[in-house]
Amino acid sequence: MASLTASAPVEPSGPRPKRIGPGRYGVYAFLIISALFFLIPLYVMIVTSLKPMDEIRLGNLFALPGSPSFDAWIKAWSQACTGLNCNGIHVGMLNSVKILVPSVLLSIAVGSVTGYALSFWRPKGANVLFGVLLLGAFIPYQVFLYPLVRILSMVSLYNSIPGVVFVHTIFGLPLMTLLFRNFYAGIPIDLFKAARVDGGGFWAIFLRLMLPLSTPIIVVAAILQITGIWNDFLFGLIFAGRENFPMTVQLNNVVNSSFGEKEYNVNMAATILTALVPLFVYFVSGRWFVRGIASGAVKG
């Protein structure tokens, strides 16, 4: 009879012991290496932005700054030249915010209403309409640019913030509608029917019943739209007009200003400043984003 020795198998009971095998180490190693790979450019940008030009000219890309200073940041913010004006990119930041806020609000508002209408009220030809909308999402933007410029100048919205907001709202519509339609497709139809029997109309059901249920998908939509619109270059350049250029366009002007020596530290600082908003959004909302994508956007 086998006696109880150290080598005797342990009777399984309670939580299974966690074993970390060589496979696990491999996975971690891979993850750390890829994280480093993506972090190196960021590192270079940050250290460069903190060095004076003399130090940069030495060419030691990875060296830490000898005496870190924020001069380049201050210059990028308030003195860098974009074309003829030398007010820094904070002007662009303000413009970007002025474009971003109404565009995000409007595109989500319109997208949620169309998604709601398409999935619950099913107007005649809803599927055709939705198909056309999706098709619109796949046609390259460039095709629409010239006609849109003509249309906007006809209604005197060309070269203005409302004009660029309008464009962002229109181009956000397919994705926003898809997102909300699929989310609402996952809500039991009986809920809608019950509200109808209770006397709810189109808007009452939307505002009182559906919207309070939509938080997760609104967060996803907001993240997509904030990053998308903040990073936009083309529409801002074409539709906003010279005084309203968003930050991305001004960044480009700063970096490409062609007199004198290239001020790498200022360029790096300006770039980081421009990327700050999307970066912040990702850091704050990563968890929400994944959850929303998993629960609503992909399913259905």
Partner: peptide, 12 residues
């Protein structure tokens, strides 16, 4: 008035 199999109560 209608009563549904899935209850269909307003969740929020």
């Amino acid at each position: 008035g209608m009563v549904f199999q899935s209850y269909a109560l307003y969740p929020r």
